[in-house]
Simulated scan of single mutants.
Amino acid sequence: MNAARPVSLSRATALVAQREIVTRVRSKAFLVSTGILLVGIVVAFVVMQLLGDREQTTSVAAPAAIAAELPDGAGIEVTTTASAEEARALVAEEEVDAAVVADDASPAGVTIVAQTEAPEALVSALSLAPTVELLDPDGAWSALRYIMGIAFGVIFMGAAMSFGMPVATSVVEEKQTRVVEILITAIPARALLAGKVLGNTAMAFAQIALVAITVSGSLLATGQTEILAGLGSPLLWFALFFVTGFLLIATLFAATGAMVSRQEDISQTISPILYLVMAPYMLVIFFSNNPLVMAIMSYVPFSSPVSMPIRMFFGEAEWWEPIVSIVLSLAACVGVVALAARIYENSLLRMGARVSWRDALAH
């Protein structure tokens, strides 16, 4: 009989990745959570559109001479009356929100009559607005920037936790049940590491792609094309940055998971990785309006998936900046993968006590 040919590294990696993907796709919890996420996105954009379209109209009564001067539209509905007394009567009967009548003693020449308070839309329409000069127009707090930071941060952190943590727990489970000893006899340790990371990265990217498609479709369906036009490029870059950022996170999860042999001990080794996952989310929220901090974070591999797309959306990044940032992220991936592979190979078959960092990094 001919001896069985050893499985090549690429083939073994593909087999492990396929197993990870099939296992996740068959998980009802994964399918349900993904469905809830996508439905939540659609509902959020529909609600935003409904709130945006709900325009509060102020009804105003005024004599013919004054009614002709009032802006009919833009939130103001004008009712023409025969006299000022009739206009006042409509306000008293709560048929209209306010009345505008002539008043020679008023600097504006008219007086607004209302029940409890004058409608702001009417006051603004009758006011002469002065010219405004802003010395720092971009320095104010931006609600949209804050919301985008939360959105990108939550998506990145959620995906890293949903797909990265299982990498570590599956490694520990295979060690605890000693299944890994059988796997290593058939495939190289590096193939096992690469397959786990690539399989979960593919699933995480697929979920992010679904999120991007759902966001784009929701914006188109609700007619919010201006937001979509500005968000299109940042979304694509976010997906690209997400791949490199998640590769770093998932590789470190697998390597640190290999350092322990029991599920109870896993929190000891993955704590630093959890900080790397949470850091972009927290930093972007606290420093969203700090240009210097945001610029620095857009070049750091673990925070660039969140900070760089935001800077691109607001036109703060030059065309070459995301390219340089992605190159730095890829270089970091190469270094982290090499380091994680050494930790993984040195720790995978060591049972019992937690493997120290010194032993895990030894040649």
Rank of each mutant, 00 (worst) to 15 (best):
M1N: 14
M1S: 15
R5V: 14
S8H: 11
S8Q: 13
V16M: 06
R19I: 05
L31N: 08
D53V: 09
D53F: 02
A67H: 02
E69C: 06
P71Y: 02
D72T: 09
G75P: 07
T80A: 02
A82R: 13
A82D: 13
E85K: 06
E85L: 06
V91E: 00
V91P: 00
E93V: 01
E94V: 09
V100D: 01
V100H: 00
V101N: 01
D104G: 13
P107G: 06
I112K: 01
L122Q: 03
L122M: 03
L126D: 00
A129R: 14
L134Q: 11
P137S: 07
A143M: 14
L144C: 06
Y146H: 05
I147S: 15
M148N: 01
G149Q: 04
I150P: 05
V154L: 14
M157P: 08
G158K: 10
F163V: 11
F163P: 04
E174T: 12
T177L: 03
V180R: 00
A191I: 01
G195C: 09
N200G: 11
N200F: 08
T201F: 10
A204I: 04
F205T: 15
Q207S: 11
A212T: 10
I213Y: 02
S216N: 03
S218H: 04
S218K: 06
L219C: 06
L219F: 02
A221T: 07
A221C: 04
I227L: 03
G230C: 01
G232I: 09
L236P: 08
A239K: 15
I249N: 02
G257K: 08
I266Q: 02
I266T: 03
Q268R: 11
S271F: 14
P272F: 04
M282A: 14
M282T: 14
P291M: 04
A295C: 09
S298E: 01
S307Y: 05
M308D: 05
F313K: 12
L328E: 05
A331Y: 15
G335R: 11
Y344H: 06
A353K: 04
R354C: 03
L361V: 08
